[in-house]
Each structure stands twice: as C-alpha cells, then as structure tokens.
Simulated scan of single mutants.
Amino acid sequence: MEGTESTTRERSTAKDGNKAADQEVLMSSKPLHRFVQREPRDVGIAILIFGCAEVMMGFTLSGERDAFTSFGIYTSFWQGTLFLVCGSLSIYTELRPSKKMVTVCLSMYVVSLLGIIVSLVYRIRIFSYLRYLTFYRRESLSLQRLHQICAIEALLFTCSLFVAGLLIFLCVIARLALKSTRTQIIVRHIPAPPTDTTAT
C-alpha cells in the first residue's frame, strides 16, 4: 500500500515537473512570446477586413471604363490579396508561433508595404487627373459620377494609409522578435527523488 502511494506521488511530481519545464521552455523564447502578446491576430482580422473591402471596391471600379481609376493596374485586386494574405498569416502565427512563421510574416509585411507605396503614388496621380476632369472636361462623365469615383479612390487611399500603419507596427514587433530570438536550448536537470535503500 505504501509502495503504491509513493509511486503515485512520484508520478504526480514528475508530471508537475514536466509542466513546469514546458512552461520554462515556453517562456525561454520570450521575444516570440512578446510578439504573441501584442495580439497580431486582432490586427490580422482588421487587415483582413480592409483586404475584403479593397477587393469588393475593385469590382465596383472595374465597371468604370470612361475614367482613369486604380483598376488600370488592378490595384484593388493585388493589394486586397496582399492584405488577405498578411491578415491570415498574422492570425495563424498567433495560434502557432514559431520563428519560421514570424519570418514569413515579416517578409509579407514588407512586400505589402511596398505595394501600398506603389498604390498610393498611383492614386495620387488619379486624384490629379480626376480634378482635371472635374474642372476642364465634363463631357465624358457626369459630375456626380466623377465625385463618386473620387470618393471611392479617397476611401481606398485612406484605408491603405491605415493598413500601412498597422503593417509598420507588425513589422517592428516581428523584427524585434527575430532579432532577439536565437536558437537557445535550455536543459534543466531535475534530479530524481532519493530512494530509500534501507528497506526493512
């Protein structure tokens, strides 16, 4: 009876030791833990919403043939796809954090930021052209239609700026996580409880 009680205690002590060791291994990769603490999943959900809005507005702009819009280089579609990929990766990385996934996320964030720069420059050209149409050439499109296109482009421009801010934040925390995380193995030796050799 005493033998079974001591064996049960040893097993429970070993289980508690394994849990503590697992917790220490989790906390040993603190930079990745800090990356997860910043809740990239919530930011990723916001980026996903902006990506869906960008793609949906792209379908609206695709029907406009008479005006110079961002559909000219399919901006809404490829930028919306980049936002969707970044948002999905952020959500997945918080659920299963690893150095490899943070590296993939960081590279996609940088690519998306470059895409945002291209789209912002292109949309600034669109605004100047639409302003020219509004004041000098009104025969090709009605003034109301021009204002609608300008409002859509301004909305997408603002969304791109907001997503750029979110991506810069994610880039910073991902870079800090990768900079401080090096391959470290912490081995903790837990000695076995002493056994009584003087059994009677």
Rank of each mutant, 00 (worst) to 15 (best):
S6M: 13
T8F: 14
R9G: 09
R9T: 11
E10M: 13
S12H: 15
T13I: 11
T13Y: 10
T13S: 13
A14L: 14
A14M: 10
K15G: 08
K19W: 06
K19V: 06
A20W: 08
A20Y: 10
D22C: 06
L26A: 08
M27T: 15
S28P: 04
P31G: 02
P31C: 02
P31T: 01
L32Y: 00
R34W: 00
V36S: 00
Q37D: 00
R38I: 02
R38V: 02
E39D: 14
V43N: 00
G44Y: 00
I45F: 08
I47G: 00
L48G: 09
L48M: 13
I49M: 12
I49G: 12
F50M: 13
G51K: 01
G51Y: 01
C52I: 15
C52Y: 15
M56R: 15
M57A: 07
F59K: 12
L61K: 02
L61W: 04
S62D: 12
S62V: 11
D66Y: 08
A67P: 08
T69K: 03
F71E: 05
Y74P: 05
T75F: 09
T75H: 08
S76G: 13
F77M: 04
W78F: 05
W78P: 02
W78E: 02
Q79R: 07
Q79H: 09
G80V: 04
T81W: 06
L82V: 04
F83Y: 08
L84F: 04
S88I: 04
L89V: 01
I91P: 01
I91W: 01
E94R: 00
L95V: 10
R96L: 01
S98V: 02
S98H: 03
K99Y: 12
K100G: 07
M101S: 08
V104G: 03
V104I: 11
L106H: 03
L106Y: 01
S107E: 14
M108H: 07
M108V: 03
Y109P: 03
V111N: 10
V111P: 03
S112C: 14
L114C: 13
I116V: 07
V118F: 13
V118I: 11
L120C: 05
L120I: 06
Y122Q: 07
R123E: 07
R125H: 11
I126N: 02
L130A: 01
F135H: 09
F135M: 06
Y136E: 06
R137A: 15
R138Y: 02
E139K: 14
L141K: 11
L141R: 11
S142M: 08
L143Y: 12
Q144M: 10
R145T: 12
C150E: 08
A151D: 06
A151S: 07
E153N: 05
A154E: 02
F157E: 01
T158A: 10
T158M: 10
T158H: 07
S160L: 03
F162D: 10
F162R: 05
F162E: 08
A164R: 03
I168Y: 15
L170W: 01
I173Y: 00
A174G: 05
A177P: 00
A177E: 00
K179Y: 09
S180V: 07
R182S: 14
R182F: 15
R182P: 14
R182I: 13
I186Q: 15
V187Y: 07
R188G: 05
R188P: 06
H189D: 13
H189K: 14
P191W: 07
A192C: 14
P193S: 15
P194H: 04
T197G: 05
A199N: 12
T200N: 10
